[in-house]
Design a protein around this nucleic acid. Structure first.
Lengths: 338, 338
DNA sequence: CACACTTGTTAAAGCGCTTTAAGGATACCC
DNA sequence: GGGTATCCTTAAAGCGCTTTAACAAGTGTG
């Protein structure tokens, strides 16, 4: 009996209209081999005429595999937004679907993970997870877990991140190539990431300029910390600065301008993260990109490899950052380009 | 038989362990009346010991109502991010759950809506939908549809938005109260929203200053348009400007500073949207907020009213904007506060 | 023409939960 | 002690789809 309710058509309705069983209809609609030309066409027509769409809950429930990847994200982060796009696209290409659950005031990471698991996803991609290594390992007991963008050592958990030290080194190389020799680093907040970036800076400057050229000033992750760092930049002749991230760089930029120093005329400036902020016409900041495209693809790949049994050992995917050159860097003053 | 698979525990496992039927277990776990103290406690204990979590697909499938609200969002928009937070919180409070599907390069609005419908959500909250009025009306045939933040006239569709003209009027009132009389409006791109904001400006200025004080200069929605508008501001003595939105305001701000004019010393500036950008320490822009908290709550309320049969006619919820005063506005130069 | 093979199709058994109608206790009253 | 109202509890029937195993029907063989 075709459903008389005004609700959406059921698979049974399509099958009835096509004059076949629901089994055949199901096979056809998912492009599985089996049904012959006649049946196939009939089902397709019927489905189209009825405007049929499979009920996802029912499919998921009946299917062994769900082919669903659960992604947690900080809904406020533009970087996560970019990652989501890329993850979506990459998953699509591999026949997986994505369910995202945003971290909000009312839904902390634990709750988000639960929501994700409740929707039967087969793997978890956690963007910059705040969970402890132990919690992550625990989660990874029952399904693949990929930590994206956070350097964490948790057995069983795959990690996809960008080489922070290499990113800062790129910035140094760029500035040195422009002729700079007095390059300062405005440090970030204490933590793994700052440490990696700072040591990347140290090593690159030592190598390319000399051991005495290292000049790290305290800063932070926000504009005000960057602005505050500007006064510390006066102690030594500095023709360029690399900031911990774009927000910090923005503070530095603003502080410099208030001081009457022009960027990049008097001083060149490099940020980190390549946020939309950096791309704004009025800011136009040279910045190090974490290549969200690569990260998203790598994260999906890591999860799918595990799911399809192609790998059972942990992996850490270390991606190469890319320097995006914009208007905030140029040759140092009192010098001409070679 | 308790499931021997290593998978998560089933309801049947909990029931078995508690020594009751799955029916009782289900009732207890959803806090429904019926089961007595003993059974209740036994189920709760068993569930806890097993770490049981209900499978969402199965619940949804079995339940009549899904109590699910589908939300589409532009994953890049910080404003949408705020809305999502608020919607989530509001829905939570009314016993509804939210499934969000982000608009991305690979998933346009049509596809997002389909995804949402496939997950059995009972109503659609579309943030700034791009669909035509006809398409929206069509969707609203089968379920409540709420258009959030876009003024659209589509029969059957509820609309929740902020009164754009009132927002600009607030800005004018604030500036006039500070003593300004020469207030320019940097216009936005052509469209409904610009029209509303512009006319709000016109009416407020006519009323509070005089018919000749109206001064609209062409602008746009982005920084470069704002910066370009600065030169047009020189023709007339202007002590304050209201920009179409924050991004445009940012351009104006930058242009003014380049001209050597200080904000708010020489000229006061007001933006629109109260984006995180406006809150940055170095920008500190007075701006009109669209009150995402109110919008989210109103949108959820609109959907739930329809779902629970409390209303069957269309409704347009027009919210009052709020002016957030920051450092970019002050008294005009050569004047003392009264 | 009986035999094994394909190939196309379907009946029926779930997936894990909710819900309804019916069944068992228990207690209370006349 | 039988009747009945009150509580708890549960068996069983789905929710809409997928999948497996079995079954027709058609194709060649010996």
């Amino acid at each position: 009996m075709p459903s008389t309710r005004s609700s959406r058509p059921r698979l049974a309705d399509v099958a009835a209209r096509a004059g076949v069983s629901t089994a055949t209809a199901s096979l056809v609609l998912r492009g599985r081999p089996g049904p012959g030309r006649r049946a196939r066409q009939a089902v397709l027509d019927a489905s189209h005429e009825l405007g049929y769409r499979a009920d996802r809950s029912a499919s998921l429930l009946a299917r062994r595999r769900t082919q669903l990847l659960g992604v947690s994200m900080d809904v406020r982060s533009p970087f996560h937004a970019e990652l989501i796009e890329e993850i979506h696209a990459a998953a699509d290409g591999l026949g997986y679907d994505v369910v995202v659950s945003p971290l909000t005031r009312t839904h902390d990471e634990r709750r988000v993970v639960e929501t994700l698991l409740d929707s039967r996803c087969e793997a978890l991609l956690l963007l910059a997870p705040g969970l402890s290594a132990a919690q992550l390992t625990d989660l990874a007991q029952d399904r693949p877990v990929v930590a994206v963008g956070r350097p964490v050592t948790a057995p069983g958990v795959d990690v996809v991140r960008v080489a922070d030290d290499r990113g800062v080194a790129l910035a140094v190389e760029h500035l040195v190539a422009l002729g700079h020799r007095d390059i300062a680093f405005v440090d970030g907040p204490s933590g793994t990431i700052s440490t990696l970036r700072r040591s990347g800076y140290r090593r690159a400057v030592r190598r390319l300029v000399g051991p005495d050229a290292v000049h790290v000033v305290p800063g932070g992750a926000t504009e005000d910390k960057g602005a505050a760092a500007v006064s510390l930049l006066r102690g030594r002749p500095v023709s360029a600065a690399i900031a911990f991230n774009d927000r910090c760089a923005l503070g530095v930029l603003d502080g410099l301008r208030r001081d009457g120093r022009s960027v990049p005329g008097d001083i060149s400036l490099v940020g980190y993260d390549d946020t939309p902020l950096a791309r704004l016409g009025t800011i136009d900041l040279t910045s190090v990109s974490q290549t969200p495209g690569e990260m998203g693809a790598a994260a999906v790949r890591a999860a799918v490899e595990r799911l399809e049994g192609a790998r059972s050992h942990d992996v850490e995917v270390l991606l190469e950052p890319v320097l995006v050159v914009r208007g905030s860097t140029g040759p140092p003053p009192n010098r001409t380009m070679p």
